[in-house]
């Protein structure tokens, strides 16, 4: 760094007191600014919680506890019950998670334990690409390509062969809970896969060698050494995927059909918490309506805060033992 040092050289020859004073002032100011900026993160988080709470107060006072189990959502009549949205969010995210988890873990294992470095790297890059696609584009593809396909082929097929089950009864709409589950699955798989991949890469090779030296096949090595070692990290990845699925807005809004109805059938349209906010908030018919939507947002915020904290704690726990042993 020849240039900065040259520029600073006169400072060295200045009287020491002046130098120290100037340095101290500059340092004090600079540090102050950075502290302020760092604290702003914490401030924003608190501000979000407080602001959401205060804006949902009218609804909390009016509806009370019946807000959560209430099934009726009538902006004109002023009755607000959030159950259909809570139900839709829970079912869509849990089902998509159930589908995405095995796929993601298997893909991550394929990248780190089966494929050679070049192929694995290529697959990992493609998965990253999948994770970078904006959700509105997933929604666009979902509503214009996937939903019509579901309506034409998949849903009639399910209805014909499994229609006796309540889960697959009713006419095929295309836009449905099934569409939401599938699009969510496609969206969270890359997230779970890439975090799981990082967790697996952090496992020391000595663990794999220990299993292989005992005469384990590759799968036995995975079951004996890899998965148990990475289990809390993988759990963290899955929970992070759940958080993403619950909060996902655009893609789900575009394919779920937006009907506040609790139905067991996956072929029926449904509604989720973020979707109702996206659809109704900008044109809320009354202050109470807006506050009710805020309260749904507050519920969503609390749930995602809990889920994300849990996931981060699990993922932080992973890195420590690896770092210590390496």
């Amino acid at each position: 760094m020849p240039r900065p040092s040259h520029a600073e050289r006169p400072v060295i020859f200045l009287p020491p007191r002046w130098n120290i004073k100037r340095g101290l002032n500059g340092d004090f100011l600079f540090k102050g600014v950075t502290v302020l900026f760092a604290i702003s993160i914490l401030g924003i988080l608190l501000l979000m919680a407080v602001s959401m709470y205060r804006q949902s107060l009218p609804s909390i006072h009016t509806s009370g506890w019946s807000f959560i189990p209430g099934k009726e959502w009538d902006p004109v009549g002023g009755t607000f019950g959030a159950l259909p949205y809570i139900y839709g969010s829970l079912v869509s995210s849990l089902l998509s998670l159930a589908l995405a988890t095995p796929l993601s873990i298997a893909t991550a294992l394929f990248i780190t334990e089966v494929a050679n470095r070049r192929v694995g790297g290529m697959i990992a890059a493609l998965v990253e690409l999948l994770a970078a696609i904006p959700s509105v584009i997933y929604g666009l593809w979902g509503v214009l390509v996937m939903a019509p396909w579901l309506q034409r082929t998949v849903e009639p097929f399910l209805n014909d062969h499994l229609g006796f089950l309540p889960f697959f009864s009713g006419p095929p709409y295309g836009v449905s809970m099934l569409a939401a589950v599938l699009i969510l699955m496609i969206m969270i798989v890359p997230i779970i896969t890439s975090i799981t991949k990082e967790v697996l890469l952090a496992i020391p090779d000595s663990q794999r060698e220990a299993a292989v030296a005992l005469g384990a096949t590759r799968w036995e090595m995975i079951r004996m050494a890899v998965l148990p070692y990475g289990r809390s990290g993988i759990l963290g990845a899955v929970i992070l995927g759940l958080g993403r699925a619950i909060g996902e807005t655009m893609a789900v809004t575009m394919v779920i059909g937006n009907t506040p109805k609790i139905s067991l059938s996956l072929l029926d349209p449904a509604y989720t918490m973020p979707s109702v906010i996206a659809n109704e908030f900008a044109e809320a018919s009354s202050d109470l309506h807006a506050a009710a939507l805020m309260e749904i947002g507050l519920l969503l915020l609390v749930v995602t805060l809990i889920i994300n904290s849990l996931a981060r704690l699990l993922l932080w726990g992973v890195n420590r033992p690896t770092g210590g042993q390496a």
């Binding site: 501000l47 979000m48 959401m52 804006q55 909060g247 996206a278 939507l293 915020l301 995602t304 981060r312």
Partner: peptide, 18 residues
Amino acid sequence: DVLSGIPSIITGMVVYGL
């Protein structure tokens, strides 16, 4: 880390109020 996991629609609602 927690902030980056908050659904972005909630960020929109907060800024709306702000």
